[in-house]
Design a protein around this nucleic acid. Structure first.
Lengths: 189, 189
DNA sequence: ACCTGAACACCGTTCAAGT
DNA sequence: ACCTGAACACCGTTCAAGT
């Protein structure tokens, strides 16, 4: 029924991921693998030649999200340490705001990120970027004496929590204005 | 086929919520309404006499979660303000740790909490408890001059982010030990 | 007023059969 | 090696019919 020309897709795996990322932002984190396949004109069973199951597919999306994330976090190297730390926070919140479903997926406990190895590695790299910025700030006199990993994790927690509250529409009315860096002044004083 | 005795359930709505909360913690946030109905010996269509759709059912679960949450947060009134603030944070993290799926559901943006009115009201009450603790601390000299709602939101963000990172299994190895209050010392110094 | 039974459109997943 | 077609068990949801 189908010509041999289109029977084998050039690179179905990559195309599925690309379309998956598109649908993720459109329909949210419970996107259907069937719908992704259908919009690519491919059979519902086709994705299973490239991903063991839906969880592995979602893990691939999350992994791709983490590399984009790390890229977005690599910023502010030209600033002085304290400004660079704020710039990183600003970039973090900007990414979460611009890719809400992707960000949510990346940090979902549904096992997408947890076991998926590529995903974990990409996440660790993102966290490494954060630690670097914290270390730089600490070397310039910020919060001396505290363990740097603990400090970085706590900073991560502020950003992660802020992104979540904001993204879930739970931010109290008066507070919305400061989601681009001023947040950090509250604790980073 | 069924006797008139068991045909009408005493209080199906409440029973559905109770069983829903049970299954939520067992199978996670993507529990099936059909499975809940089945384990109650009731037809798959029965829940729809009590909830408009699945989202409204999940909203009811989240609302129940928020009242338990508020209860858990009402603690430390006997302590001095700064200790009470830490106790609240400790209780917050304890709740998130003990009810991971419920906590996740409560803050999920899938629309469960957002529109659901009972849920929003319960969430606001929980946030009010937090603001009270922050105000008490501020009146005793903590971070003077900062807007109290902003301050409370930032504190909330630390806790929410910490709970998320911890619950998703993303906490770096060395940091796990301090999830019961010492976290706060990092920023609340 | 509340519940059932059967149906519908959807979903993830499997597997023999096609190219 | 990669994809299809058809099937299976599941799901949310609707609605006429039962109590």
């Amino acid at each position: 029924m189908k010509s041999a020309r289109t029977y084998h897709h050039p690179d179905l795996r990559a195309t599925l991921v690309a379309e998956g990322l598109r649908q993720l932002e459109r329909v949210g984190t419970d996107l259907s693998l069937r719908a992704v396949a259908k919009s690519l004109g491919v059979s519902p069973a086709a994705p299973f030649r490239h991903f063991a199951d839906r969880a592995e597919f979602m893990g691939a999306l999350a992994a791709e999200g983490f590399v984009q994330f790390t890229l977005a976090l690599t910023t502010g190297r030209e600033f002085e340490p304290m400004e660079a730390l704020k710039a990183l926070g600003s970039a973090y919140l900007g990414f979460a705001r611009d890719h809400p479903s992707l960000y949510r997926l990346m940090f979902s406990a549904a096992g997408y990120s947890l076991n998926h190895p590529a995903c974990r590695e990409a996440a660790n790299q993102a966290f490494g970027t954060l630690i670097n910025a914290v270390t730089r700030a600490q070397n310039s006199g910020w919060k001396p004496g505290k363990d740097e990993i603990t400090l970085a994790t706590a900073y991560w927690a502020v950003l992660h929590g802020w992104a979540g509250i904001s993204g879930d529409g739970l931010m109290p009315p008066g507070v919305t204005a400061m989601d681009r860096g001023e947040l950090l002044d509250v604790y980073l004083s």
